[in-house]
Design a protein around this nucleic acid. Structure first.
Length: 303
DNA sequence: GGCTACCAAGTAACCCGGTA
DNA sequence: TACCGGGTTACTTGGTAGCC
C-alpha cells in the first residue's frame, strides 16, 4: 500500500504525542498490561504537520526490539478489542487491513483464540499494535482510521466498485451503505438536516442533536414502538416523514421496527433507531411540535 | 488462512385499507 | 377510482463464526 500524505486530516503529530504521554496512565479496568508505546520511535513533537497513512500505522508499530520485561495479556487485549468493536466505530475487516496490516481472518483468530504472548512470533506485533491502539483516545483512533483508510487510493478504488483485486474488505463509512446508516446511529451523528428556519426556533439543532442522540442503556422496544405509533396517530405525522427526517432511515425500516420490535438485548444495528425514538418521546410536546413545524411535517396546518 | 453458512439490516415490490 | 399511507414478503449485502 503506498504511503501518502493526507492533507485533509486534522490530526497532528503533536496531538498524537499528547496521546502517547497519557500512556503511563493505567488502562481502565486493566492491571495486566504494561506500557509499551513509550518505547516506540515516535515523531518528535516539533512536527506539527498532518501525518500520512504510513505514519499512522507506524504509530502503532514496534520500531524497537521488545524488552524482555514486557508482558502483554493477549486475553485482556482480545477482550478489550472485542468490546471496542461493539462500538462499531470500525469494522473488524477494516481495522485488520488498514490498521494492523493483516487479513480479517487473522484478526479474528487473534481475538477468538488468543495465545500466550511469549509463544507468539509474528503475532506479537499485532497484539502490540492492538495494545497501543487501546491506549489512544477515541478521537485519535477516529483520526487514524480516517487517515489510514478513508483517504488512500485503495479504499477509493474499492469503494467505487467490486473491481478491486486486493482482498475484499469493508470500509464502514464509504463502502457499505447499510453500515453507513448503522454507523450513523451508533456514532450519534444525527439525521436531522439543518434548515435555516431552525435558527429562529427556541431549540437549536445542536441542542436537539445532543439530546436526541443521548446514550441510553436500555429501551423498552415494545413500549417505545407503541408510544411512537400512538404519537404518529395523534399528530397525524406520517411514518415517511418521521423515518426520513427524524430517524434518517427509510420508511420500511421504521415500519418494521414499530411492528416487529426485537428485544433490546437482541438488537445490534437498530439500537440507534430505538434510542432516537426513546429520546424523541422524552422531548416535550411543545418541542416536538416545533420540530415538526420546522421540518414541515404533514398535517401541521391542522395543529 | 480459505471456504462457507448463517445472521442481521436495509430495501424493492407488492398488496390492502381508508378517503376524497 | 385514483391516491396515499401502512403492512408484508422476498431479496441483497456485509459481518461473523464454524470448519477444515
Amino acid at each position: 500500500m503506498p504511503s501518502q500524505s493526507v492533507n485533509i486530516s486534522q490530526i497532528t503529530i503533536s496531538e498524537l504525542n499528547n496521546a502517547v504521554l497519557n500512556f503511563n496512565r493505567p488502562m481502565p479496568s486493566s492491571s495486566s498490561c504494561s506500557p509499551v508505546l513509550s518505547s516506540l520511535s515516535l515523531p518528535t513533537s516539533t512536527q506539527s504537520r498532518s501525518m500520512s497513512a504510513e505514519q499512522a500505522r507506524e504509530l502503532l508499530t514496534m520500531s524497537t526490539p521488545i524488552p524482555d520485561n514486557i508482558y502483554i495479556d493477549t486475553n485482556d487485549i482480545a477482550r478489550k478489542m472485542k468490546e471496542w468493536f461493539t462500538l462499531r466505530i470500525s469494522t473488524r475487516s477494516f481495522f485488520a487491513v488498514h490498521v494492523l496490516g493483516t487479513g480479517r481472518n487473522r484478526l479474528r483468530k487473534l481475538l477468538t483464540v488468543p495465545r500466550p504472548f511469549n509463544s507468539l512470533k509474528a503475532g506479537k506485533e499485532l497484539y502490540i499494535k492492538m495494545y497501543n491502539w487501546l491506549k489512544l483516545s477515541e478521537d485519535v483512533k477516529k483520526e487514524i482510521l480516517s487517515v489510514v483508510g478513508m483517504n488512500d487510493e485503495k479504499s477509493k478504488k474499492i469503494a467505487q466498485g467490486p473491481e478491486g483485486e486486493e482482498e475484499e474488505y469493508a470500509c464502514p463509512k464509504k463502502i457499505s451503505r447499510k453500515r453507513e446508516v448503522s454507523h450513523h446511529s451508533e456514532t450519534s451523528s444525527y439525521s436531522l438536516l439543518s434548515p435555516d428556519s431552525f435558527l429562529h426556533t427556541s431549540i437549536t439543532a445542536e441542542t436537539l442533536n445532543a439530546f436526541i442522540n443521548k446514550q441510553v442503556d436500555y429501551v423498552d422496544t415494545k413500549k417505545i414502538s407503541n408510544l411512537i405509533k400512538d404519537w404518529l396517530k395523534e399528530t397525524q405525522a406520517t411514518q415517511e416523514w418521521f423515518a426520513t427526517k427524524i430517524l434518517g432511515r427509510c420508511r420500511k425500516t421504521l415500519n418494521q421496527c414499530l411492528n416487529n420490535p426485537r428485544e433490546w438485548k437482541n438488537l445490534t444495528q437498530n439500537k440507534g433507531i430505538f434510542v432516537t425514538m426513546h429520546n424523541w418521546m422524552c422531548l416535550t410536546k411543545e418541542n416536538r411540535h416545533e420540530i415538526m413545524r420546522v421540518y414541515k411535517a404533514p398535517n401541521m396546518n391542522s395543529h
